[in-house]
């Protein structure tokens, strides 16, 4: 291992971690709000043409928070993970489209 880290670097890292944790708590609050909105829309029977697209949009944004903040995909060194997650998401999307349009006719 390298030599002991200087104290100020240690302090800097801790500060960075605190900063990141703050972002994560904010994204958690956002996720909770999205969940409330989604459940609220259904429970109070918001009758609208847009309800299903809105529900899906809320889910996608919430998942993006989860991936980019909780799982750190926004950080450096996540190019390959992002490539493979997007690859998986692309195949997933094709699969879902197929199964919602090409199974019954």
């Amino acid at each position: 291992m390298s030599n002991a880290k200087p104290a100020h670097q240690h302090e800097y890292e801790r500060k960075q971690h605190r900063e990141e944790m703050k972002h994560q708590v904010i994204s958690f609050v956002m996720m909770i709000i999205f969940t409330f909105v989604a459940f609220g829309m259904v429970m109070f029977e918001v009758n609208s043409f847009f309800i299903i697209p809105t529900l899906i949009l809320l889910a996608v944004v919430q998942v993006a928070f989860q991936l980019y903040y909780f799982m750190h995909m926004k950080n450096k060194g996540h190019d390959m993970p992002a490539l493979m997650m997007y690859g998986g998401a692309a195949v997933a999307l094709l699969t879902i489209i197929t199964f919602t349009t090409l199974i019954w006719w």
């Binding site: 195949v91 094709l94 699969t95 197929t98 199964f99 090409l102 199974i103 019954w104």
Partner: peptide, 12 residues
């Protein structure tokens, strides 16, 4: 049920 599901999964 629907048998086409197998065909799609198999060929995907």
């Amino acid at each position: 049920g629907n048998v086409i599901i197998w065909e799609h999964l198999f060929w995907i």
